[in-house]
Design a protein around this nucleic acid. Sequence first.
RNA 1: GGCGGCGUGGCCGAGUGGUUUAGGCAGGGGCCUGCAAAGCCCCGUACAGCGGUUCGAUUCCGCUCGCCGCCUCCA
Length: 464
Amino acid sequence: MLLLHDTATGEVAPLRLRSPGKVGLYVCGPTVDGIPHLGHGRFSLVFDVLRRYLLFSGLEVTYVSNITDIEDKIIDRAADRGIPIDEFTAINEALWWEIMDALGVLRPDEVPHATAYVDRMIVLIGDLVAKGVAYETATGVYLSVLDVPGYGLLARQPLDSLRAGARIEADEEKRSPLDFVLWKKAKPGEPSWEAPWGAGRPGWHTECVVMSLDLLGEGFELHGGGQDLTFPHHENERAQAVADGKEFARHWMHNGWVTVGGEKMSKSLGNFTSLADLLARSDARAYRLLVLRSHYRSPIEVTPDTIAQAEAGLARLDELARRFALSDLLAEGPPTGPDAAVGELDEEAVAAFIASMDDDLDTPGALAAVFDLARQANSAADAGDDRGAIRAAGTANLLAAALGLRLQGVVDDAVDEVSATLVRQRDDARAAKDWAAADALRAELEGAGWLVEDSAEGTRIRRR
RNA sequence: GGCGGCGUGGCCGAGUGGUUUAGGCAGGGGCCUGCAAAGCCCCGUACAGCGGUUCGAUUCCGCUCGCCGCCUCCA
């Protein structure tokens, strides 16, 4: 049984489903105000892996992840560029999906956009005002957190202590410094929607409540996001649902940061590396492997060195796929269980993998199972045990696929005429035992960027 | 000020009250190879420091030091 850490309780607990076999998962998506960075990549990969594992466990998953396409920074940046907001957000969203595709992140089942939900947000805000838990001021409509039972659940702090820590000057009109804006009244020139409280736009925390409840229904199973969304974003989402008398997420999951020199990577610190830059200089699968190598709640340090380590590990798995001509199990979509495998399985390894993943997504342990299988496969093959070798390799392929990791056994490197000639010449030289010539030809091929290997079928080259 | 997390062998990074190891990368030795590459085998007696609990702690408790995060937009 799958156990997951729940931020609301601080404990690792079984996921409680509303109906057997079905899981609704809402993950806070990006604000499309610029280029996505490594942090966005991590949360996307972490929840992609979770989603894939839920599928692998035989569950029917509805994965919803939003696009925040109206927000202060979006307004500012679009204005800076002198282009309409919708054009600006469309450009950034297209970039987002392009990068997600490159990372092998499955597209969500539903992608709600904040701007498409403003009407329903206005309805929620109206309800909250009618119930007396929200109130209007000169600048907008606010939620009174003192009226929300259990406020501070996700922050895991009592309300008093949160209030004591508030570092921001309170709006004079706010009843509590922790009260947050549901509706921002528009200043001249700002984009706005008509509402009972005047033209304006919704506060950030309102969109996710409305969209998640609309698409997944009350009491949906899982709500996730980066750790920095825990408070106040998720706290405030929950507060609105609770204040509106709705059952909200049953289980909260938050992933750790990407760090740079030990510090959190963030837009505000400006210490971020864009995913586009990363993908330009490394195998997209390396980042997935890097993310999988550590537990999702731990911080990960992304450096050229850790990326290189991941790429080296990947090369080892690719070599396995090459040696055993493993098929691409992801071609038909995410594996929905061990049955997706081709051929016999190493049941013990599958069980070890499942035990790791069931334990709050222990991907490092799951990965260890994959690497163990790789060694076993090679070892068995070296010993002439073909059946055992193929079983281990096939199992490794399945488990890697379950994690969204595609092993590339066949690389269709176009071999140019000159290189092909060098290969033929080298085979001739080796046949004639002219080692000096063979070595010289190898050096020449390597100089041209090829990785040269001898095999029973003769010289093999591939791009390195 | 309030709350929380972390400190593991050269590097990354899991895990656990004790007979036997996470795993990966790098490194050393060996096998294989004409030489390589790939692969396989062997090798590192690590758990911040100081106390305590215990027959026994890296793992439990306390303290100290160091690092980080949230309480503000942020994945």
